[in-house]
Simulated assay, not measured.
Amino acid sequence: MSALVHIVDGDAASQAGIDRMLRACGYRTKAYVSADEILSQIPSGEGAGCIVMDAPAPDSSIPDLVSLFSKAGVSLPVIFLADRGDVRAGVRAIKAGAEDFFTKPVEREEFIGAVDRAVLRHQIANEQENWVRMARARLDRLTRREREVFDLVVRGKMNKQVAFEIGTTERTVKAHRHEVMKKMQVRSVVELVTCAERLGLLRPVIP
């Protein structure tokens, strides 16, 4: 399914023009007339996408709007469009966390390029979030002893060292290690370490 672009623009003619441009490039679209409307229908479960939004007036209120989206749980990248704008307005928007800023009428190739980048970034972020959620669920299935083995193995401890630290036999450690690998769905210690790193579980050890 193609990505969904949410268009927020109270000007029907402007909204229709952006809609046609996006649909011609294979995007699905959904229209809103105001920020309040999209906030009342917070996009969720739509997969990758972004928001293309008419910039509020004055431009100085852009940071407040971006913050409002963030607080409402809207993770979609936002591209602002303005009837008129200056360099300061664009810089203000980017510093506030907007994906990009354009002055109408937009240059088609440049605008679609920005939408493509925004959608790709959102897709990557979603995939990372889904991976972390699944990995944490697998981690939660480890028993207390398996978690101890996991923590030591990803820090480079050999079976013999792990056995000494947790007070058991090397044979038992091997059994626990096998279960850890199976439950975490990895095939090597390298993959297990990578998993721990991506979950933010590896921190410098201070003597």
Rank of each mutant, 00 (worst) to 15 (best):
A118S: 05
R141C: 14
A163Y: 00
D100Q: 06
C195H: 13
T143E: 05
M158A: 14
D36Q: 12
R187Q: 14
P56S: 08
M1F: 07
R187I: 14
T168W: 03
T103K: 10
S60G: 09
F102V: 07
V189A: 11
Q123R: 13
V87D: 14
R133Q: 12
F150Y: 12
A3L: 01
E197L: 15
D19T: 07
L81I: 09
V119E: 06
L199F: 04
E129L: 11
L152S: 12
F69D: 01
V106I: 07
M1V: 07
N130D: 12
V153I: 14
S67H: 09
H6A: 02
H122P: 01
R117N: 08
E46P: 09
N159V: 09
A82Q: 04
V173A: 02
R88E: 13
I206W: 15
M184T: 05
D83C: 11
L65V: 11
M53G: 06
V132G: 00
D100E: 09
E46F: 11
L68W: 13
A137T: 13
V189I: 14
R121Q: 14
D86V: 09
F150S: 05
Q185S: 11
H122K: 00
V5H: 04
D151T: 15
E191T: 07
G90R: 05
V115P: 00
D59E: 15
V52P: 06
V132H: 08
D140E: 14
T29E: 00
R203K: 15
V153G: 05
P63E: 04
A31C: 13
M1P: 12
E148G: 03
R88F: 14
D64Y: 09
G97Y: 08
R187S: 14
V180K: 03
E197T: 11
R145K: 11
N126T: 08
K182P: 00
V132M: 11
V162L: 01
K30R: 13
V33S: 13
Y27F: 14
G156V: 10
I112D: 03
L4P: 00
L39A: 10
I124Y: 08
V186W: 10
I79N: 04
E107V: 15
T169S: 15
A89I: 06
L76Y: 10
P105H: 06
V149A: 03
E146M: 11
V66N: 02
K71N: 08
A48T: 05
H176K: 06
R121V: 09
D19K: 13
